[in-house]
Computed example of a mutant assay.
Amino acid sequence: MSVDDEQIGKNFTRLRGDLSQKEVAELMRARGFRWSQATVWSIEKGERPLRLSEAQAVVEVLGQPFFDLTADDGEAVVDAWMRECSNASKALEAAVDRFEQARMQLALTYRHVEGKLRRKHEDGGGWLRTTVEDVVREHRERDRGDESLMGQFVDANDPWLIAYNETIEKEYPSGERPAAS
């Protein structure tokens, strides 16, 4: 596969994310390169080639793998969705930690005020008995749609969709969502 300056420029634009062209130029100047905002603009438009030493510094400054700078459009899209999955997974882990911490704090608080609560606060509003799995199951029930269509796509022979469908089947081995508790 041959990657031209225009493709590298498109990837550069995508990889810099929320950083402005001026900010990238400043970061590169701090590494000893004589860059301006116009340099970044020229590279992004494919009008100026990116030298190898510059490319190495750029990926370090942007915190991105070198491969992403030279990826073709298909690879770039797949890589972007892989990063999104990774970021979503980290956010989900953080949310689980916050949920468990909140439940623990609720339990600790509840034991000190138990006899002084109104009816709506009995049992911590149900949260003390709610697990992460309960929350996920409720989400699936609410947002998944018709279970007969769950995880089913038009091309049942596509290996990537098969892998995705297998994860759905692990969650719902009978093909139906569990009854709400």
Rank of each mutant, 00 (worst) to 15 (best):
A94C: 07
K120D: 15
L19C: 08
G63E: 14
V59S: 09
L15W: 12
E60W: 09
R137H: 11
E93K: 00
G124Y: 00
T130C: 04
E6L: 15
W160R: 08
I8P: 02
T109H: 12
M150R: 04
A88V: 08
L50P: 15
I168F: 11
S36F: 04
L92M: 14
S148Y: 09
R119T: 14
S42Y: 15
A76H: 09
V132W: 13
D146I: 11
Q37M: 02
S174L: 15
E122T: 14
D68Y: 15
D73W: 09
I8V: 05
V132T: 10
V61W: 01
Q37N: 06
E6D: 11
D72N: 05
T130F: 03
R14N: 14
A107F: 11
L149G: 06
P65C: 03
D146Q: 09
E169T: 14
V59K: 01
R137W: 05
A107W: 09
Q37G: 00
D146S: 12
H112S: 10
F33Y: 07
R16I: 08
E100D: 14
T70Y: 10
E176K: 05
V61E: 07
E60P: 04
G125H: 02
W160F: 11
H139G: 13
G63C: 06
V96C: 01
M82A: 00
G63Q: 07
D18F: 08
A95Y: 00
C85R: 07
K120N: 15
L15P: 02
R14Y: 13
R34L: 07
P159M: 01
E44C: 15
K170H: 08
A38R: 14
V59D: 10
A91W: 00
K22G: 11
L52H: 07
G63D: 11
N157M: 10
N87D: 14
A30N: 03
P178Q: 03
D73K: 10
E176T: 15
R137V: 05
W160H: 12
G175R: 13
G63A: 02
R103L: 00
P173Y: 11
G46F: 09
V40C: 03
M1Q: 05
G151R: 05
L106F: 05
Q105H: 12
K10H: 02
G126L: 09
R51V: 12
G32S: 14
D18G: 10
A156M: 07
G46C: 13
R48P: 03
M150V: 02
M28T: 06
L19I: 10
G9P: 12
Q21T: 13
V59A: 07
Q64I: 08
E122S: 09
E141G: 13
R118D: 15
V113L: 14
E23N: 08
V135P: 02
L108Y: 13
E147C: 03
R140S: 02
L128P: 01
A156P: 02
T130Q: 04
L52S: 03
G175A: 09
Q64L: 09
K116A: 13
A55F: 01
G9R: 01
S148N: 12
G46A: 13
V24Y: 08
L108S: 09
R119D: 10
E122Y: 15
V135Q: 06
M150W: 12
W35T: 08
E176F: 03
E44H: 12
G32Q: 15
F67L: 05
M150P: 04
E84H: 06
S42Q: 10
